[in-house]
Computed example of a mutant assay.
Amino acid sequence: MTALFDPRDPAVRSDPYPIYRRLRETDPIHQSHFGYWVLSHYADVDAVLRAPGVSSEFYRNTTWAQRRGGVDSPLVRSVRNWMLMLDGPAHRRIRGVISRVFTRGAVERLQPRVAAEANRLLDAVGEGETDLIDSLALPLPVTVTCELLGLPTDNRDQCRHWTEQISRVIDPSITAEDTVAMNRAETEFREYVTGELDRRRSAPREDILSLLVHAEVDGVRLTDHEIIANVLFLFVAGHETTVNLVGNGLLALLRHPDQLQLLREDPELIPGAIDEITRYDAPVQIVSRLLDEEVVLDDAVLPAGAKVMLLFGAASRDPARYADPERLDVTRTGIKTLAFSGGPHYCLGAALGKMETAVVLAELLRRYSKIELTGEELGWRPNVSFRGLQRLPLRLMH
């Protein structure tokens, strides 16, 4: 019998939405052959994200850790301190420090810098054909993250390379080669950040690194290992999500020219449209949880000890939550996307990622009277948890 859902299926990368629809319609609480419960209804996914006794600490699972190099590997030792991978007081301790940087006011103050960097990159692009992923969607968020953290932007290409390797850690379809590459990237990135931390101790600045070095929680400072691990995590979260949101969003609009035209005619719609394109083709498709306690859903009881895979992409097109969910509608209201997770692990950087995407889209529409796909093959990146394009070949005309 063919599995209803297999993250290794190439179709999950190229177009997962027919698979998601089949899951929702035939087996929405699906017991997979690879040991996970797979949930595809919005209400079920949302319920698990918010339920007590649900854990993000996947490093506790021996099989999960072994596939990533073992419990004592550089990568697993790092993720044991990622805010994303912690529960309860340990999670709140680190989140409480980092949340000081991602307030609404702080994000608004960053907008002019984001706009300036987007304009610099588009000045270099000019008119004609370009791969928008390589020329804009990739360099913009990594530059913003470097500046936010206080890392030299001269090293952004190397930081991007490390981030792309390390981001595979949450992917359910990693290979032995991925494990080697992830651990090598973690080791190199950690050594680089360690040098930057030493400089902040002697000469603090107005950046996240200085904040993390000197911040205290109940009179206790974060350890270097906690700081470095969460710098790596912030790069993964801030970079991967925004790259995919820009690329997926623009592709969706180009495939729905009537919706793109609405934004041209009324740019005030753009902020709300970011929520819709996030719903339509989520930059984060899959997250997983461990159940320390039983979780009761309307149609099933998930037992304590279960591993659960939450399909954000499927939930975002659930007709029980959104009317006509397969249609892109930039005027849609009442969107509560799960693409940035939910419950205690809701993404602190969601507002920053959406703001970056809104700035990019507004500037593209202001500069170019025509934005067209060239017809070249697009290609999707191998990571199935983060859904994003490898290339977005466009023809831009003033």
Rank of each mutant, 00 (worst) to 15 (best):
residue 37 W to P: 02
residue 312 F to K: 09
residue 370 K to D: 15
residue 164 E to Q: 06
residue 86 L to I: 14
residue 120 R to I: 04
residue 183 N to V: 04
residue 84 L to I: 06
residue 391 R to M: 07
residue 224 D to K: 03
residue 180 V to N: 11
residue 359 V to Y: 09
residue 352 L to A: 10
residue 18 P to A: 10
residue 23 L to C: 06
residue 381 R to M: 11
residue 131 D to W: 03
residue 78 S to H: 05
residue 67 R to W: 00
residue 187 T to W: 15
residue 372 E to C: 04
residue 235 F to R: 00
residue 65 A to L: 03
residue 243 V to M: 11
residue 251 L to N: 08
residue 256 H to V: 02
residue 14 S to Y: 00
residue 218 D to S: 07
residue 143 T to F: 10
residue 46 D to S: 05
residue 275 D to S: 05
residue 293 E to F: 09
residue 77 R to P: 08
residue 70 G to C: 14
residue 59 Y to F: 15
residue 166 I to D: 08
residue 78 S to I: 09
residue 100 R to P: 03
residue 307 K to N: 13
residue 207 D to A: 10
residue 111 Q to T: 08
residue 355 M to V: 05
residue 348 L to M: 10
residue 298 D to R: 12
residue 144 V to G: 05
residue 205 R to I: 13
residue 259 Q to D: 08
residue 326 E to Q: 14
residue 375 G to P: 14
residue 196 E to I: 01
residue 90 A to D: 15
residue 293 E to D: 14
residue 131 D to N: 01
residue 184 R to D: 13
residue 256 H to T: 13
residue 265 E to I: 02
residue 15 D to V: 04
residue 77 R to I: 12
residue 363 E to P: 04
residue 293 E to L: 09
residue 150 G to E: 07
residue 259 Q to Y: 02
residue 358 A to R: 14
residue 321 R to M: 01
residue 81 N to A: 05
residue 22 R to S: 02
residue 201 R to Q: 15
residue 233 F to A: 11
residue 19 I to S: 06
residue 242 T to F: 11
residue 264 R to S: 00
residue 124 A to L: 14
residue 333 T to N: 05
residue 11 A to E: 07
residue 100 R to M: 08
residue 149 L to H: 01
residue 392 L to W: 04
residue 319 P to R: 06
residue 35 G to W: 05
residue 44 D to C: 07
residue 93 R to H: 07
residue 345 H to A: 09
residue 169 V to N: 12
residue 261 Q to R: 15
residue 12 V to N: 00
residue 72 D to V: 10
residue 54 V to F: 10
residue 75 L to M: 05
residue 376 E to P: 13
residue 315 A to L: 12
residue 37 W to E: 04
residue 206 E to I: 10
residue 103 T to Y: 14
residue 47 A to L: 07
residue 241 T to D: 02
residue 328 L to C: 09
residue 24 R to W: 08
residue 86 L to A: 15
residue 22 R to N: 06
residue 41 H to R: 14
residue 130 T to K: 08
residue 10 P to G: 09
residue 14 S to H: 00
residue 158 Q to F: 04
residue 191 E to A: 15
residue 306 A to C: 08
residue 37 W to V: 06
residue 262 L to H: 09
residue 98 I to N: 07
residue 133 I to D: 12
residue 182 M to N: 00
residue 314 A to K: 02
residue 40 S to P: 08
residue 86 L to T: 13
residue 107 V to A: 07
residue 318 D to A: 11
residue 42 Y to D: 05
residue 371 I to V: 15
residue 246 V to G: 00
residue 288 S to Y: 00
residue 88 G to Y: 01
residue 184 R to T: 15
residue 315 A to Y: 11
residue 10 P to R: 06
residue 118 A to D: 10
residue 61 N to W: 12
residue 284 V to F: 14
residue 253 L to Q: 05
residue 340 F to S: 02
